[in-house]
Nucleic acid binder design. Sequence first.
DNA 1: TTTGTTGTAACATTTTATATTACAACCAGA
DNA 2: TCTGGTTGTAATATAAAATGTTACAACAAA
Lengths: 144, 144
Amino acid sequence: MQFSSRLPIAVHILLAIVEFEGKNKTTSVFLAGSVNVNPVIIRNTLGQLKAAGLITVKAGEGGSALAKKPEDISLMDIFEAVEKEEELFHFHENPNPECPVGRNVHAVLDKRLLSIQEAMKQEMKSITLQSLIDDMNHMLDPNE
Amino acid sequence: MQFSSRLPIAVHILLAIVEFEGKNKTTSVFLAGSVNVNPVIIRNTLGQLKAAGLITVKAGEGGSALAKKPEDISLMDIFEAVEKEEELFHFHENPNPECPVGRNVHAVLDKRLLSIQEAMKQEMKSITLQSLIDDMNHMLDPNE
DNA sequence: TTTGTTGTAACATTTTATATTACAACCAGA
DNA sequence: TCTGGTTGTAATATAAAATGTTACAACAAA
């Protein structure tokens, strides 16, 4: 079981928007060339990031830009923008209500699964886009 | 995106093994009746839990039992027994190496994604089967 | 030896992710 | 105002993963 590549792709897109600001127009086709997926995937992702208020997209003209400062965008914001699920775990649908265990697993497990999800989200919140940009800049120019 | 129901099912199985100890023989068919999935799913899961050293299964005779004390089994142990993935996130396969971003996203993101995974696992480690049993017993008999 | 079981393979079905094609709506510049 | 490149989105296709099912050999106890 794995998460889809949506979060990695969205982060890639945001890093590219920052990196190419003022240098290249970041159209869906241009971004698709960097991420190496179909441009429609990019457009859909851009749409989700826009809906979440993280970027602006220029319809017709083309290109996108950050709508917030990178230090105000966390992995959590990005994750929630591109993954719609509320529940991290898929619970088996119909435990037997006639069984004392089947009747109660849900109540017993739910809060634990939520706390796991919460731990994950807390960690995501602590990672900002800015810190990723810093890391990338350091790789592009170690002396900076 | 969601995790499969494997962890919830495995926990259900373990709780049932504890609950019915000495009362019913916990065969795959019996357990399937409580979880409400196909017995083969149960057998496969039992096999994984056995391989991880969490339970014993009696071939031929039928039935299963815990191989460790419930306080020594964490959700993390169960999770690792039934989910084989090493990486939580699926990274997009071929970022463009000719692009400064494409060339570096992997290095930049990987450690962050790992820390998210790590946060999740830490939380899983802190939850023992015993605590779930306690919760369930309290639901079955609030005065206990 | 009979009965009920585990372990496992093979296959079917369902769901989700990802890719692709197509096209209307849009916008800037010629 | 026309043109060219673009976004937004629907529809469809393909691929991959999860889940369900059937079948049967190996096994163990009565």
